Simulated scan of single mutants.
Amino acid sequence: MQRTFVIFKPDCMEQRHVGNVLNRFEQAGFTIVGCKMGKLSPEKLREHYAHVASKPFYPEIEAFMSSRPVIMMALQGENIVQKVRDLLGPTDSRKAAKGTIRGDFGTEMMKNVVHASDSDENAKLELARFFKAEELFNV
């Protein structure tokens, strides 16, 4: 079994899509093994988005991601990283097909409902970044 990390982003929270998105994850057979809500600090966001933190558009990402509390979740399942990515659709919601989470609920590149780890390696790093070991459960 693999694990992955997801963030229900500020647009998901504001538009009240959390229940719909979570239902899709559960219907896909994924198991929740960690869940918490919090506001992301500038320091945590810079660490998480280090690969784009030097880009001119980064301040917009930080402002958006810190605009309201988010839900952070650890999910478990077979081949889960790829399955979650497939369920979400492309990062740019405008290019996502209807029936995908981003195609149904997203509005643009940044306002794309959910962040999800893009590889097994990043899933492990992101889970460790946002969860203490005792906050993740074997169920």
Rank of each mutant, 00 (worst) to 15 (best):
81 V>C: 01
63 A>Q: 14
118 D>E: 12
65 M>L: 13
21 V>D: 01
41 S>D: 05
44 K>H: 08
133 A>R: 07
130 F>T: 01
100 T>G: 00
115 H>S: 01
6 V>D: 12
128 A>V: 01
97 A>C: 07
55 K>G: 05
9 K>L: 00
1 M>V: 09
1 M>P: 02
129 R>P: 01
48 H>G: 01
74 A>Y: 00
36 K>W: 00
139 V>P: 13
26 E>C: 01
80 I>G: 09
25 F>Y: 09
78 E>F: 05
137 F>D: 09
64 F>P: 04
1 M>S: 08
122 N>Y: 09
109 M>G: 12
51 H>A: 14
72 M>L: 11
61 I>G: 08
64 F>V: 12
9 K>S: 03
108 E>Y: 10
91 T>I: 14
68 R>A: 15
41 S>H: 06
64 F>Y: 15
49 Y>S: 04
3 R>G: 15
115 H>C: 03
110 M>S: 13
121 E>P: 05
114 V>K: 03
95 K>L: 13
46 R>D: 05
42 P>F: 05
47 E>T: 10
129 R>M: 13
56 P>N: 06
28 A>T: 11
89 G>Y: 08
70 V>F: 05
26 E>G: 08
10 P>C: 14
128 A>I: 03
77 G>D: 03
88 L>Y: 02
46 R>T: 00
83 K>D: 10
15 Q>A: 15
93 S>M: 04
130 F>E: 01
132 K>R: 13
82 Q>K: 12
76 Q>R: 07
135 E>K: 05
25 F>C: 02
38 G>A: 05
26 E>P: 08
72 M>D: 11
81 V>F: 03
96 A>T: 06
29 G>C: 09
131 F>D: 10
78 E>Y: 10
117 S>V: 11
38 G>D: 04
40 L>N: 07
36 K>G: 01
37 M>V: 13
71 I>R: 06
138 N>F: 12
113 V>P: 06
61 I>A: 03
52 V>A: 00
89 G>P: 12
29 G>K: 07
127 L>I: 10
67 S>P: 06
31 T>V: 10
88 L>Q: 03
32 I>R: 03
21 V>E: 01
31 T>G: 13
119 S>H: 04
41 S>F: 00
94 R>P: 14
91 T>C: 06
23 N>H: 15
109 M>R: 15
33 V>H: 00
103 G>M: 10
103 G>N: 03
1 M>E: 09
125 L>W: 11
122 N>L: 13
54 S>C: 09
98 K>P: 14
46 R>C: 04
97 A>R: 09
101 I>F: 12
51 H>P: 05
46 R>Q: 06
138 N>Q: 12
76 Q>E: 11
2 Q>R: 10
15 Q>P: 15
30 F>Y: 06
51 H>N: 15
32 I>H: 04
93 S>C: 12
127 L>Y: 00
17 H>D: 07
136 L>D: 02
45 L>P: 01
24 R>K: 11
58 Y>M: 07
92 D>M: 01
35 C>G: 00
31 T>F: 03
